[in-house]
Amino acid sequence: MKTIIFSIFSLCIISKTVAQEINWRALNEQSNHLVSAYFGADFSSYYGISYGYSIKNKVKPFFIGTEFTLPFGKDLIDDWRWNLNLQTELWHNDHFSFGTKLSFVARSYSSPMATIYNTASALSFNFGYVRPKAGVVIIAAYDKTMATHIEHKLMKEYYPQIRDGWYKASGGTFKFGIRGNWSYKSWSTFLTVGKAYAQNFKDNPTLPFFAEFSVQKQFGK
C-alpha cells in the first residue's frame, strides 16, 4: 500500500495551495458537498470557484474536488487554471490535524507573445490546530510541471526559427504558508498567506507572496 501511495505521489507532483480547503472538524455529518468562492494573488491576482464531494467510507474521509481559477484582467478567459484534486485527513486527535491534497493541474495562458498549455501535478500537506469553529494550519506544497505546449505568436515574428510544440517538465515551485479559518453553522471562511519559491530557490516569482480569501458553504445530500 505504501508503495502505491508513494508511486501516486511520485507521479503527481501544486499550482494552487488553497481554494478548496477543508476544516475537517467543522464538517457536518450530513454534508456531502462543499462549494467555495475565492479571490487572491498567486503569481497574479485571481478569482475562482471550487466544488468538493465527500466520498464516504469506513476508513478515511475523502473529498474529491475541482477548482477553476481565472486571473483578473480585461481578457476574461485567455488564461485559466483548473485542477482535479483528492483530499484527506491522514491523522488527527482532538485538536490537531494532519491532512494532504493531491492535484492534477491544467493551465492555459495566452498573450501577444505566445499561447501555452501546461499540465502539472501538485501535492500539499497541512498541519495545525483545528477546532469546529476555528483553526490555524501551516501548509507546505510542491507543484511540478509535467508537459507544456507552446505556440509562439509575436516571438515567432521576431525569431522565425523558434520552436513551437511540446516541451517536457519545465520546472516546479514550492509554497509555504499559513491558513486560518472560522466556521459558523454550514459556512466557513479561510484566509491563507504564504511565500512561493522556485524549485531551485533562486529563480523565484516576481510576486513571491500569495494570499487568498475564500468563503465556503457545505450542504447535504
Binding site: D42, F43, S45, N118, T173, P205
Partner: peptide
Amino acid sequence: KFFSEALNDAVFPEQIIAGRDEQEIL
C-alpha cells in the same frame, strides 16, 4: 497595476517555467 491584464501576461508563465538555472530559459 495589480489587477491588469498586462501584469498577468508578464507573470503567469512564471508558474509554468520555474526554477530553472539555464540562462537560455531565463
